[in-house]
Design a binder for these strands. Structure first.
Lengths: 343, 343
DNA sequence: TATTAGCACTCAAGTATCAAGAGTGCTAAC
DNA sequence: GTTAGCACTCTTGATACTTGAGTGCTAATA
């Protein structure tokens, strides 16, 4: 347990370092208005904090720098309790645009978020779990090709072109689409493959010649790859940070960002609320120098998606956490409204 | 006009420099098997080439480095004549996938291209000028919202969600869609706004209540923004190049790449064939250190799109130009086949 | 006359040395 | 318990020196 004075010093050092990116010395601290101790006293406190693992030196006679443990303590005990559950109305003007699709809205939010901080923002989702199939259409383009279009009740549209096998007759295709629409309308997307197997397959056997081929086509066209909707904003922001002067670091960061799967895995956040992962707490090698703050947004009980900010461990935690918390609330609210209008 | 010897030396220097990224000295050249002159002779030649502006020194006693004029000469007179109009079958396996959409195919090509070189690849298009509208659909999602879907005869799908104004009745909406489909089917996309104005507007006046509102909605939903289909591959590749150690350069490069419009403008290439822009020949400040090689691919007479590679001025011109030339041929052929199947 | 060997000269880049400054830890005094 | 004082450490930037690669020029050579 830290004494009040230790806590104060830790806090001041972290605040200072977050702002300046330079190691903080005892004299600088003792000069501050809110500190009434001499440099020597501060030095003693700092030595204690270092022994406890909250601070580090860059070399034997340097000022102190927060360790990851220090940041952890700072986030958990200093910032955490002060966060109010507010909103800032970042998205207000975005939501008002009636043409705005859900996805555009999210994308826009990612941009705003990265502009507001100087970090990289990542937004995952929304994955609407009880999204239901609204309509399935197959529009023939020519004798050999057609485009399949899947529309959900949330206005999300997926499409896939495919060639029509010579064996499959146009009439069969039509029948198939009719069966599918009849049986699958209103079925939630996650249950689609299941229902397809249990209910539709048998029907197709009866009515559609060469149903297997058709079925295979259908399945591969829609139900294989679930594209994760990932929006990244401000990828160049980390280049502003003094800790990323090193080209190798930059490269490993950008390589990671280009790999969607890795980023998605990073964000899969089982817990609710704000989640802070500092430096080596991150499982991914490429971001051992980074901190990642994630927040989820919801509709009802289902987690819908994740907003995150990625920056150096020397991050403006207070600002970022407040912002992310607010935005997550706003998005939850916006989704609720949006959904009410569309439900 | 350069003498044979001068040309030889220029060529050797450029080849060497492209490979090593280090200034090339006279001794190194004279040691080469294909060079039978002493270092002193080479020095004289180099001095001449420098006077003519084809070479530069990095400092008064350094080896020589090609100037932009040098590269220009090299590209125009050394490489240009040797390029054969070949194909390499990069895309062969890509095209065989029957599910592949045109856009995916292009995207994949961009990836392959950047993997094959160590530069950044940019592909624009395909913009199919005589793409025709196949079908227009409006699927209501709820009382207040609907999603409009536009399908072209090339299998391209655009969609936009919008809210239905209270004043607009469902029956009107339906009527409108019917009118639109009837009148606009088969109309080429570029002529869409025009035909909309001339033919459809008057019809709508007659049959649809509150046609103006509906018309406005429609227009804003589809005909405003023409999304340019831009695919970029290997953005991290330039970080491998030794000339981009400087964080500022990296930042300005990535900032530019994030701005789609700028990139698109870069590629709008009025001419056919391969186009090489070296260093300061580029209009965009951010790529004054880069060379850009563009090639167009076609269907018939219309230019359809552009493939490009962006790398340092010290680029493997021979390899890149050969590759791009081949790929442009392949894409033209692939499009032809694709179109034949779909026409 | 064209080529080459030789030599003095230049510059970049790496290395060593030094001084200044910021900061520490410890001790002794308050 | 707090602080002043002091010796000590380490970084940083400046300066100088060395080395090596490379040049330009001149005079000798084929």
């Amino acid at each position: 347990m830290l004494s009040n004075r230790q806590l104060l010093v830790l806090q001041v050092i972290i605040d200072d370092f977050i702002e300046s990116a330079h190691p903080v010395g005892s004299r600088a601290i003792s000069k501050r208005e809110d500190i009434s101790y001499s440099a020597a006293t501060i030095r003693n406190v700092m030595a204690d904090l270092e022994d406890m693992g909250y601070l580090e030196k860059t070399h034997s006679s340097s000022g102190r720098v927060p360790s990851e443990k220090g940041y952890r303590y700072y986030v958990d005990h200093v910032i955490g309790p002060t966060i109010k559950n507010g909103k800032i109305n970042i998205m207000k003007h975005l939501i008002q645009d009636e043409f705005m699709e859900l996805e555009k809205l999210v994308q826009k939010s990612a941009e705003v978020l990265s502009d507001l901080t100087s970090y990289t923002s990542i937004i995952l989702g929304p994955e609407i779990y009880d999204t239901k199939l609204k309509q399935l259409q197959i529009v023939p383009l020519s004798q050999h090709t057609a485009v399949a279009i899947l529309i959900t009740d949330t206005g999300h549209v997926e499409h896939r072109s495919f060639s029509i096998p010579a064996e499959l007759h146009a009439s069969d295709l039509e029948k198939m689409v009719n069966i599918l629409n009849e049986r699958l309308q209103g079925v939630s997307l996650v249950r689609l493959p299941e229902v397809l197997n249990s209910e539709v397959l048998s029907l197709m056997k009866i009515y559609v010649n060469d149903f297997e081929k058709a079925y295979d086509y259908l399945k591969s066209a829609f139900f294989n790859e679930q594209p994760s909707k990932l929006y990244i904003g401000g990828k160049t922001n980390i280049l502003m940070q003094p800790e990323f002067k090193d080209v190798d670091k930059i490269r490993s960061f950008y390589s990671m960002m280009e790999n969607e799967n890795e980023v998605v895995n990073l964000l899969r956040n089982p817990q609710n609320g704000i989640q802070v992962t500092i430096g080596h707490e991150n499982k991914l090698e490429a971001i051992k120098d980074f901190s990642l703050i994630t927040a989820s947004y919801h509709l009802g009980d289902d987690q819908m998606g994740t907003i995150a900010l990625l920056g150096p461990t020397r991050m403006e935690y207070r600002k970022v956490i407040t912002l992310l918390n607010a935005l997550s609330n706003e998005m939850t609210e916006a989704l609720y409204l949006w959904y009410k209008n569309n439900g």
